[in-house]
Design a protein around this nucleic acid. Structure first.
Lengths: 257, 257
DNA sequence: CGTTATCTTGACGTACATCAAATGTCGTGG
DNA sequence: CCACGACATTTGATGTACGTCAAGATAACG
């Protein structure tokens, strides 16, 4: 077990074991949202809140997939490594996201915290018997897997067929799908990952990421107030540049409050 | 409904409705393999065998996803199209493969027969109530979705980070995972798809596919007796060139009988 | 406030795309 | 069975987008 994880035991005394889940802020967005209040009694005692440092790898490709994780706050990158060290980032996980679906004994990808991360962790072996009882949870798993599969297909089209400009625009729009704080004129997107991470996600180099951001900036489509922040100035233009694919409904409605 | 589909009704008289499924040659490999003989009674009456011509599109991106399909024989390509017509093939479906998982109302990709194709088709709306009863089938769906997701991640690494030579070698090895006829000295791989299809799957052009095949041939790693056939002469070398990722257990054991 | 890592910008090289032509494959009808 | 035409594939010549290498500029950190 990794000692860099700080485990905050949520199991209080007997009567209170339900509380942590019923108060959970991300319950609605995660898999647990599909579980009825009554069934939470089974779930809560198995859950452990774990804090993970930035840079810490908490899922290791090739190692036993022991746990399911739900991100409570912070973010993580998910990646695979080729024999010679080349890396492909297959996705990012944010608040409410669920991790750990695996058909084999071992995980097929790694996960590393991009910033201080808090997750809700449940041992797979302990959850399995509960799945049999709480049918809605298994259905939720299937729904999640299918959605992720669909996203993966989109990303395959991006990696196989899009130019650098299109990749960058698509990436920004994808990040903009996460809920943004309201009351701002233009969507302001926080990027917790480094340029290397973006490059490894888009299948290009850091220099290319840097240059394509510069180009979008010069076009007046975006603004880059700092390394980890992007402001979308011209949403329509950005969509046009992205070359399509991502469904048009999803950018967060940024009306001034 | 598409009149180019030839529907062979499998629903015989009452007593015999079970027969088609229980005699099905691909039942073991498909989702139906998870269904007990007793439960087949529910399944069989909903299934329709459909023949599809080569070149016929039977799943259309953006159109309602009405059916689940299991390939009985033949093969198909699955793809997405960008706004300007660029295409990314996200996978191929062969005998025993299952198609049609979708979380939304509409399909997110298209599917077209590569050769005369026979599928077993079930309306999604009709299967859903059965899923509630036949639990094992839902579990099988989840397992399939997770496996496909894992394959998609592998393909993302290929598209994002591999050279042309590595892509080609990986592709050949992937195709070699399908069962091969025994009794031959070297695995002989049948490729039902065109060079354009291979190119759109690997994220390169047809010329690049052609050239990289020529290079592998000159290296003595493979032989190309005809357009739709590849023989692996040096498996170890091919693996070395592929740059890793695909699990090493999967090439078909080609001992001489 | 210096030290180090990260990011940006520039100069140049190369793998793959593009364009073009030759060759091969397959179906059709004589 | 062979000749023909249409299309698919291969091979060659050239262009270019992105990678590589290198040097500054910014940001992060003790």
């Amino acid at each position: 077990m990794n000692h860099l994880f700080r485990q905050l035991d949520v199991r209080l005394n007997e009567g209170e074991c339900l509380k942590p889940c019923s108060l959970c802020e991300v319950r609605a967005t995660g898999v647990c949202g599909s579980v009825s209040s009554a069934d939470l009694i089974h779930l809560a005692p198995m859950a452990t809140i774990v804090d993970i440092d930035r840079g810490q790898t908490f899922i290791r490709e090739g190692s036993p997939a022991e746990y399911y994780f739900t991100v409570i706050y912070g973010s993580a990158k998910l990646y695979k490594i080729l024999a010679d060290g080349r890396r492909q980032i297959i996705g990012f996980a944010y608040v409410g996201n669920f991790l750990g679906l695996a058909s084999e004994e071992n995980s097929r990808f790694s996960a590393e915290a991009l910033e201080p991360l808090r997750v809700c962790r449940i041992a797979r072996t302990r959850l399995t018997p509960v799945l049999v009882r709480v049918r809605s949870m298994e259905q939720r798993f299937l729904g999640l897997a299918i959605e992720e599969l669909s996203d993966a297909h989109d990303q395959m089209a991006l990696l196989g067929r899009k130019t650098t400009a299109e990749r960058m625009a698509s990436f920004i729009l994808l990040q903009a799908r996460r809920p943004q704080p309201r009351g701002v004129k233009f969507p302001r997107i926080h990027l917790p990952m480094s340029r290397v991470d973006i490059a490894d996600y888009l299948g290009v180099t850091i220099e290319t990421v840097s240059r394509s951001l510069a180009r979008l900036k010069k076009l007046g489509v975006i603004e880059v107030p700092n390394i980890h922040e992007i402001v979308i100035l011209d949403d329509a233009r950005l969509r046009a540049i992205s070359g399509g694919l991502f469904d048009p409904t999803t950018i967060y409605d940024s009306r001034t409050s």
